[in-house]
Amino acid sequence: MLISIFLQTLALACLSLAMDKHYNAVVHGALATKRKVVLRILGWVSLLISFGLLIAQQPLLAIAVVDWLAWLSCNILLVALLLCWKSVKR
């Protein structure tokens, strides 16, 4: 379960850094098209893998989906706070 949560956090960070605005705020540079595509692919693949890992660990599908969505919402908040903190800390 811990690996699934970490993969969710990684995926959300990659998906948010694939946006020009967030990438510029964190890295202070322009986002290349190739890097944007790589970040998006890595983000979506990590989300799918984290979902698969959680489903494999939980015998009941409904509980696994609720668990995954609960952790997803927590990780969205975490990544949003980290991006805000990083962009202010220039």
Results as ranks from 00 to 15, higher is better:
L2A: 14
L2P: 04
I3E: 15
S4N: 07
I5W: 02
I5E: 06
L7A: 03
Q8R: 13
T9A: 15
T9P: 00
A11T: 01
L12D: 13
A13Y: 05
L15Y: 12
S16N: 03
L17H: 01
L17C: 03
A18Q: 01
A18E: 06
M19D: 14
H22A: 09
N24D: 05
A25C: 10
A25L: 10
A25D: 14
V27T: 09
V27M: 07
G29Q: 09
K34T: 01
R35C: 04
K36L: 01
K36G: 00
V38Y: 04
V38L: 08
V38D: 02
I41G: 00
L42E: 07
L42Q: 11
G43L: 03
W44Q: 06
L48N: 10
L48D: 05
I49T: 14
F51I: 15
L54W: 09
L54T: 13
A56T: 09
Q58E: 09
L61N: 03
A62M: 08
I63Y: 05
A64M: 11
V65L: 08
V65D: 05
V66T: 10
V66D: 14
V66Q: 15
D67L: 14
D67C: 10
L69E: 15
L69D: 13
A70W: 09
A70G: 09
L72H: 07
L72P: 13
S73E: 05
S73D: 03
S73Q: 11
S73T: 08
C74R: 04
C74V: 11
C74G: 07
N75I: 08
N75D: 08
V79H: 01
C84R: 05
C84H: 13
W85S: 10
W85T: 07
K86W: 08
V88I: 12
V88W: 14
K89A: 13
